[in-house]
């Protein structure tokens, strides 16, 4: 039997494109009770998608939101969402590209610290959700002869990260996100590379000496203590391995000794 007329078949691809690109209008085949398209009805879905993703970004980046204000942040988040939709339904993994998006956003050129602040917030969230793991017990180091210490490799604690920065990123987060301190007290000429740790359930942020940040970065990427100390000494001749290692150990940044050489 020949078909008299073809019903418009609306595909997920066309539905999805129309969600993200309002200029495409209301897709044919998505109708109200009279069988006709209705833009306000379709806009409920558009709004749900865009607003919920913007809100997810706001929850991940509260400092950026506080610094820019709700209205500016909402517009910025919309611009980001238009370019970057999540690929995964787990939204704690959405928005990793937001820091570099901020860094490359021309209207915000005068605020070059925003990108690093956002990196700190991304790292904070990943630390919050990282795998549970005991921190390394420093007593276990007693079994290693001091002369062998330089050859030791550590495993990074799964919730520990270093965020390198030339800006006072922790002061900016402390004041604007945790409402601790005064905006006027922030000195933009101070560099604050940070160590983020979560020994149990609460995330801690520690400002590091630049040489300690260099050392930690090397240890976390698999260098021996000796190799890491060498890179730290290059930027600070006063660096001492014992002080720096005890700083990382007492903050719970390390999980255990690496028994095998990394491939």
């Amino acid at each position: 039997m020949a078909q008299v007329f073809a019903l418009p078949r609306l595909s997920a691809a066309d539905f999805g494109d129309a969600l993200i690109n309002p200029e495409l209008g209301t897709p044919e085949g998505a109708v109200g009770p009279d069988g006709l398209p209705d833009v306000k009805r379709f806009n409920v879905y558009r709004n749900n998608v865009i607003v919920s993703l913007c809100e997810a970004l706001g929850e991940t980046y509260p400092t950026i939101k506080a610094l820019l204000g709700d209205e500016y942040f909402a517009a910025l988040a919309r611009a980001f969402v238009a370019e970057h939709q999540p690929s995964n339904p787990v939204l704690i993994w959405y928005g990793e590209e937001f820091p570099s998006f901020l860094g490359a956003f021309p209207p915000l050129k005068a605020y070059p610290y925003l990108e690093d602040v956002a990196r700190l917030e991304w790292a904070w969230l990943q630390s919050y959700h990282a795998k549970d793991c005991e921190v390394f017990d420093p007593a276990a180091l007693a079994t290693i002869p001091p002369t062998d210490l330089g050859g030791v490799r550590f495993q990074r604690h799964p919730a520990a990260t270093i965020v390198a920065s030339e800006w006072p990123i922790w002061d900016l987060v402390k004041v604007n996100r945790f409402k601790d301190g005064e905006q006027s007290q922030i000195d933009l000429s101070v560099a604050q590379p940070v160590l983020i740790v979560r020994p149990e359930f609460d995330v801690d942020v520690r400002v590091l000496e630049p040489s300690h940040a260099t050392f930690g970065g090397a240890v976390f990427s698999g260098a021996t203590l000796g190799e890491a100390a060498e890179t730290a000494l290059e930027i600070d001749s006063g660096f001492t391995l014992a002080d720096c290692l005890s700083n990382f150990l007492s903050n719970g940044a390390l999980a255990g000794l690496q028994t095998k050489e990394p491939a």
Partner: peptide
């Protein structure tokens, strides 16, 4: 539905 190809739309979208 909420995912098509590589995009997750974060909403419960209707099906035909």
């Amino acid at each position: 539905w909420s995912t098509h190809e590589t995009t997750y739309y974060n909403d419960l979208l209707p099906v035909p």
